[in-house]
Simulated scan of single mutants.
Amino acid sequence: MALTAVATDIITTKHHVSVHVLFVADTAGTIRKLSVVPRSRQTCLLEVLQPFAAPTTILTMRLLSEAGSLYLGTDSALVRVPVQRCERYRSETSCLGAMDPYCGWDASGLDERHCDADGRCSPANWTGLGWGDWSPWSECSVPCGGGVQTKSRTCDGDSAACLGPSRVEQECNVQRCKGDWSCWSEWSACSVSCGVGRRRRDRECRATAAAGSADVICDGAATSEEPCEMTSCTSLEGWNQWSVWSLCDARGEQHRARHCMVSEPGGELCQGEDRQARLCVDTGDAE
């Protein structure tokens, strides 16, 4: 990842005349704190700082030794970050093992003590400065359809040293929810009155209880089609339209009729029956 800014500091320690400390920022806004020990010229990674909840480009970075702070300039804010966070080390082993030139351990014999800048021991109830670590991301608020998860951090000391948000959120489980198909509808009428046509039926993708009101998706097609065959168009030549179905008669039947429009039927004219009957239905008249 490319670098955007570098700041340096020189610290005088107990064991070395001077230790060079480098603060290196990348394009995501992450700052790596490195130390260079003069005798070995070895570079060590001391700490990775993430002052922003989301990737943010640091345009400028300046270190003020007197204030013990880095000042970060972005396109929308100026942020102060302490150069030392010795309060993170709660034991002598962790404090000395970190090899942070800003921190030392006070061996004064107090029952409870903390690693502090310049090796000073602070009271057990001292909370330090700056933000604590971010909590893990919470569970997503929904299993699908787009929810929210959060993480938070607490200010360990003076609120003036805690710049930025204490809680952030991000989208999660943005994939569409799975739904359930309804039953298929009845087949539609054939698309033609004679010959071969098409008919179709439909079904609806419906949300499940888990999906709630979220937009859902179902596997498979919502529409099905198949061919349908009606009376040959040639056989209809010469006939007029069928009449509407009659009312039900005493035998529970309906009838309809058609008439041949030519004076001399024959050949391909007026083929088929001129009357039809069916059992009564309650759907009303039909063609």
Rank of each mutant, 00 (worst) to 15 (best):
V36W: 05
C162P: 04
E87T: 09
T60G: 14
V142Y: 01
D116A: 15
K151S: 03
Q254C: 00
D219E: 13
S213V: 11
W184I: 03
A222I: 10
R85P: 01
G267P: 01
E66V: 12
A98I: 10
R85D: 04
T30N: 08
P55V: 06
C95T: 09
C280M: 06
Q254P: 00
G128W: 00
T154W: 12
S191R: 06
T57N: 09
I31N: 01
A117M: 14
P38S: 02
M99R: 15
G119C: 06
A221I: 05
G146K: 08
S213R: 15
G272I: 00
G212R: 03
K14L: 10
E237F: 12
S235L: 12
S243F: 04
I31Q: 04
S263V: 15
Y71F: 13
S135D: 02
C140D: 00
W105F: 09
G238S: 04
C190G: 06
A277M: 03
S243Q: 05
C233F: 02
S94Y: 06
R167A: 14
Q42S: 14
T127H: 09
R167D: 07
K33F: 05
T8G: 07
C162M: 05
R256H: 05
R85K: 13
E237G: 09
C140G: 02
T12H: 11
P265I: 02
W245N: 02
P265Q: 03
S135R: 08
V192M: 11
R120A: 12
A211V: 06
K33G: 03
R32G: 01
R198E: 15
M1D: 13
R278A: 07
A222L: 11
T154G: 07
Q42W: 12
G104Y: 12
C248S: 09
L46F: 05
G220E: 00
E253D: 06
W105E: 00
A222Y: 06
S235G: 08
R62N: 12
C172N: 10
L3W: 03
A209N: 03
Q254Y: 03
S76F: 14
R251L: 14
L46W: 01
W187N: 05
K14C: 00
T154V: 13
A77W: 05
S76P: 09
G145N: 01
R62Y: 01
G266K: 06
R85G: 08
D116Y: 13
G68N: 09
S138D: 06
V21C: 07
W126E: 12
A257E: 13
P265W: 00
D133W: 00
R258A: 04
E139P: 04
V48Y: 01
D282F: 10
S91L: 11
S263M: 15
L236E: 11
W134C: 04
G109L: 02
R167Y: 07
D9H: 11
